[in-house]
Design a protein around this nucleic acid. Structure first.
Length: 585
RNA sequence: GCGCCUGUGGUGAAACGGAUAUCACAACGGUCUUCGGAACCGUUAUUGCGGGUUCGAUUCCUGCCGGGCGCACCA
């Protein structure tokens, strides 16, 4: 519709001999101002020094000659807005398209030429996932779905940072602190021949990643003693040398870490087309450093370290290779960026990573451009704000206020379960509870613009009233139950609208496609979240004072059709955010 | 010091340069002879401060003030 209006106005300008200008087409806040408002007269007035209302009058009289049947009325209002009112014909068409489109409804092809490789989640194996990781995963999931709905081919990627000193600390912690009898053994060979003497997550009755988390903390604490630290560093050296025993130990602890995290990730709804394992590419970065030195892009410092020259990008320089010749984070990221591009033939690479990495990523992008790996426009850092706990500030293990994803979900689920039992009476409420809890938590994160910090409010997230994920699910479930009732009553959806009045819910349904397109361009999942709340609210308000299923009422078949379209749009929109609508709740 | 992000009712948020700044929570009052009350209807209350650009600024520019993050051989 937006394009139609744009064309109409452009043609009108041409016919009137007015200059071509860029103008905005938007939905007025107040429906009394029509469905669309065009500010072209005001823009023109500025350029051509005309009176905006006179200008608008001319344009309107021109528009009125060519009005399609989907627009019922054009009006001038306020300082010179041209307001367009859509006809009920338009809404009949819109609802009909939704019903025809079903699950596929709402997609567009604006990014159909693009391949996006999106890296998100990438938790460190030595830690359990907390609220910060959760925001990353939830944001990444939604972003991938949204870009796909805009026609892009999306590769979902994760990086497994499975080597280095942190993993060595974990290995050490496991070695010295996980023996069942509590005896401290710092000898990997002994462990290898007596594995059954060591704890497993099962024997500790812990989720695998929590088991790992605990041992990592112990390993890290051990390193305060320099003797122990030496041994941990030696583990890194031995691992790099391919020591069989150390590799066995490494594989053992990593398996626990991955198993635990895979569970949490799948609970969040994360899935991946490809996982990059650090140990497979971390050494490849040095070649890029060599080639950068040859090309004169990098320079060697007197002490042997290699430094960038990013003055042309107005960025501070950074070291890409240590003086001892070993690599840094950025070193392997250069290699990985090239690998990603080659592997997927992607023309857009996205990093969903916290804002503290912002400078490092700008530097990476700039270096990749210098090295000819790709242009900076191809690389996007999707940062997101920090998550703290309301009333307690920043999460830190020292303050003991770290909220783990699993604990949060469990708490939400327990609460939902008791409500569900009361409401549906029978059956296994566990699946419903998981879906509802997931929606509550997800919505709490996604309703906020990505870059803003969130002080996570447990009470709010678990309140389920008004502006909440469960409210969205509830609306969809209720639409379904109304449709079931209509079916029993023998009322079939019909695309014949009897009256000319247009309800807000009909307007909202018709806007879904625009919202998806906007969320794609802005990479803004919260646009979808907020739209769904508006749609739900319009729907709830509508059925609150309108009888939908009524065999006596000639309006009923159309209303059933609208309800069906609401159900579809809600389901599709929720799917973009990674949420699933249960049958009942 | 420099750079990036951020500041909207009591609270949490929205507003792609537009009209009377929207929504939810909380508070208060109402709806229950219900297509499912996780609902609906109503009342109260908001753009950090100063300047600029503009017909029009929460939005853009600029200077303060407050919050967060980062700034070369850590990961």
């Amino acid at each position: 519709m937006k394009e139609t209006i744009e064309q109409l106005v452009k043609t009108a300008l041409k016919n009137l001999g007015l200059p071509e200008v860029s103008f905005a087409i938007e939905h007025p806040d107040d429906v009394a101002h029509g469905d669309y408002a065009v500010n072209v007269a005001m823009v023109l007035a500025k350029q051509a020094k005309l009176n905006p209302r006179e200008c608008a009058t001319k344009i309107v009289s021109e528009l009125e000659r060519t009005l399609p049947s989907t627009i019922s009325k054009v009006e001038i209002a306020g300082p010179g807005f041209i307001n367009l009112y859509l006809s009920s014909r338009y809404f009949v068409d819109a609802v009909s398209e939704v019903l025809k489109g079903g699950k596929g409804y709402g997609k567009n092809m604006q990014f159909s030429k693009d391949v996006w490789a999106i890296e998100y989640a990438s938790p460190n194996p030595n830690k359990s996932m907390h609220l910060g990781h959760m925001r990353n995963a939830i944001t990444g999931i939604a972003l991938c779905n949204i870009l796909e709905a805009n026609g892009a081919r999306v590769i979902r990627e994760m990086v497994d940072n499975n080597r280095g000193i942190a993993i060595a600390k974990l290995m050490w912690g496991y070695l010295v602190a996980a023996k069942k009898d509590g005896v401290r053994v710092g000898n990997a060979s002994y462990w290898q021949s007596h594995k059954s003497e060591w704890h497993t997550p099962e024997s500790r009755v812990l989720k695998a990643d929590r088991f790992v988390d605990e041992l990592y903390v112990k390993g890290a604490a051990e390193c305060e003693n320099s003797e122990n630290e030496k041994k941990v560093r030696q583990l890194v050296v031995d691992w790099e040398a391919g020591d069989k025993v150390v590799w066995d130990l490494w594989e053992t602890v990593l398996k626990y870490a991955h198993d635990g995290q895979a569970e949490t990730l799948s609970r969040l709804g994360a899935r991946f087309d490809y996982v990059w394992h650090e140990h497979e590419h971390y050494e490849k970065g040095k070649q890029y450093v060599e080639s950068g030195l040859e090309k004169g892009i990098f320079k060697k410092l007197p002490d042997g370290a290699v430094l960038t020259d990013l003055s042309q990008f107005k960025l501070t320089d950074t070291v890409v290779q240590k003086q001892d010749g070993t690599s840094l984070y950025i070193t392997q990221d250069i290699a990985l960026t090239d690998l990603k591009k080659i592997k997927h033939n992607a023309n857009h690479l996205v990093w969903v990573i916290g804002p503290e990495q912002s400078l490092a990523l700008q530097q990476l992008f700039a270096v990749c451009e210098q090295l000819g790996i790709g242009k900076r426009e191809e690389f996007t850092h999707i940062a997101y704000g920090y998550v703290s706990i309301k009333g307690q500030g920043k999460m830190s293990s020292r303050a003991g206020n770290v909220v783990y994803v699993d604990d949060l979900f469990d708490e939400a689920k327990t609460k939902v379960e008791s409500i569900v039992k009361e409401r549906i009476g029978e059956g296994d409420p566990s699946l419903i509870a998981e879906a509802v809890a997931h929606s509550a938590v997800t919505y709490e994160i996604l309703k906020v613009a990505r870059q803003k910090d969130i002080a996570f409010d447990m009470e709010m997230a678990l309140s389920f009233e008004g502006d909440s994920g469960p409210y969205l699910l509830y609306s969809a479930v209720r639409a379904k139950s109304i449709l079931d009732k209509a079916e029993k009553a023998g009322i079939k959806a019909s695309l014949e609208k009897v009256d000319a009045d247009i309800a807000m819910v009909e307007r909202m349904v018709a806007r879904y496609g625009e919202v998806v397109a906007r969320a794609g361009v802005e990479m803004a999942p919260h646009q979808i979240a907020l739209y769904l709340i508006e749609l739900s609210s319009a729907f709830n308000s509508w059925y609150g004072n309108t009888k939908i299923v009524d065999a006596e009422d000639v309006h009923s078949p159309w209303r059933v059709a609208v309800t069906a379209s609401v159900r579809i749009v809600l389901e599709n929109g929720l799917a973009l955010l990674g949420m699933k609508v249960p049958e009942r709740m």
